[in-house]
Computed example of a mutant assay.
Amino acid sequence: MAVSSLSLSWVSSTNYNKLNLPHYNEFPRATTASLFLCNNITCSADSASNEEGHCRRRQLILGVGALTTSLLNASSLFAEEIPQNYKAFVDFSDGYSYYYPSDWRDFDFRAHDSAFKDRFLQLQNVRVRFLPTEKEDIHDLGPLEEVVSNVVRKKYAAPNQIAEIFDMQERSIDGKNYYTFEYQLTSPNFSTISFSTIAIGNGRYYTLIVGANERRWRRVRDKLKVVADSFRMLDI
């Protein structure tokens, strides 16, 4: 996703607002009240008529005075926290946010709400999806080891893949609980290693997966761990 300053995605007041915020060093410095920002505005069709989330883009010039309250809040929220060489994706309507490498671009990943990938390496990407649930917390699914084993071996792995789990972590941030784990899926012809963060809130079961080809994992592991650990649920 090419971003010159701030990127705001919306449908309407009845749908969702998504923000794509750059590192704080990239925020323009206002010198007068009449300063204008160049933004990428993504207009998505209603999910009921476009479940794949395809969207069309157009360039608009917005005055600072016309920025929404959500945009201002997000700028304040992330301006001092976004790591160098990362950007923040924020979805206020669906209630989540995360960081991704600033040189990645957005793409459509089937049945996912948002996704970004390396410009040259297709398997190096992050994607987020969510499903409705009556559960209220990730702990309602069971203890960490049991849940992760079931998710990786029964949900993530295809019948022809061998699954191996390397690490599991449980975190609690602002009263919200997250399970993050590292795992490998090996197929007859290739192997990938990924981090996944799962959480429950807002009546949704959220899943973030960020991974790469096994051959590149050692070089990018720490970089992708930042993405996995950055996932947050927002109150909606």
Rank of each mutant, 00 (worst) to 15 (best):
A115P: 08
R119Q: 10
A79Y: 04
E146S: 07
R57C: 09
T133N: 01
R110A: 06
W104F: 04
I82Y: 01
A48Y: 09
R129Q: 08
D118I: 06
T68N: 13
H54M: 14
K117D: 08
N50C: 11
E52P: 02
E51K: 13
N50R: 10
Y100T: 05
E51N: 14
S102K: 07
E145L: 10
D137I: 05
V126Q: 05
S114T: 05
A79I: 08
G63T: 15
S75D: 14
N85E: 11
H139P: 03
G53D: 02
R129G: 10
A115V: 04
L60I: 08
D94M: 05
H54F: 15
D108W: 09
T42D: 09
A115I: 02
D108T: 15
E52T: 10
A48I: 08
E52Y: 07
R57V: 13
S97H: 01
N85K: 15
G142N: 00
E145N: 11
K87R: 15
A66Q: 14
D103S: 09
W104I: 01
Y99I: 05
S93H: 09
L72V: 12
D106V: 06
R56D: 13
I138N: 00
E145W: 09
K135N: 10
R57Q: 12
E146P: 00
L77G: 00
L141K: 00
I82R: 01
E134K: 15
T68S: 15
P83M: 07
I41H: 05
V64I: 15
L67K: 02
Y96D: 01
D108G: 13
R58F: 15
A111S: 13
E81Y: 11
A66E: 13
S76N: 11
S76R: 12
L60R: 10
W104Y: 03
Y96F: 15
D137Q: 04
E51I: 13
Y98C: 08
D140N: 05
S114L: 00
S76M: 07
Y99W: 07
D113H: 08
H54D: 12
F109A: 01
S114K: 00
N50Q: 12
L144V: 09
R57L: 10
Y86W: 15
P101V: 06
W104V: 01
Q124P: 07
D137Y: 04
L123M: 06
S102N: 10
V128A: 02
E81P: 00
H112I: 02
V128M: 03
F109S: 03
P143L: 02
P83T: 06
A48T: 12
Q84H: 14
F120V: 04
T42V: 11
L144W: 07
T68W: 11
S97R: 01
V126F: 05
G63R: 14
S47C: 12
D137H: 06
L72R: 15
A115L: 01
H112M: 05
L77V: 01
H139A: 09
F130C: 01
K135W: 06
L71R: 01
D91E: 11
I41A: 04
A66Y: 07
L60Q: 08
S44K: 06
H139W: 09
K135H: 12
K135G: 04
Q124L: 10
P143T: 02
T68H: 11
I138V: 04
D106K: 03
E136M: 08
S44R: 06
S114R: 00
F78M: 03
G63H: 12
D91R: 02
R129A: 07
R119D: 04
A79G: 09
G53K: 03
D140M: 03
K117Q: 12
E136V: 08
Q84D: 14
T42N: 07
E146T: 04
N73Y: 10
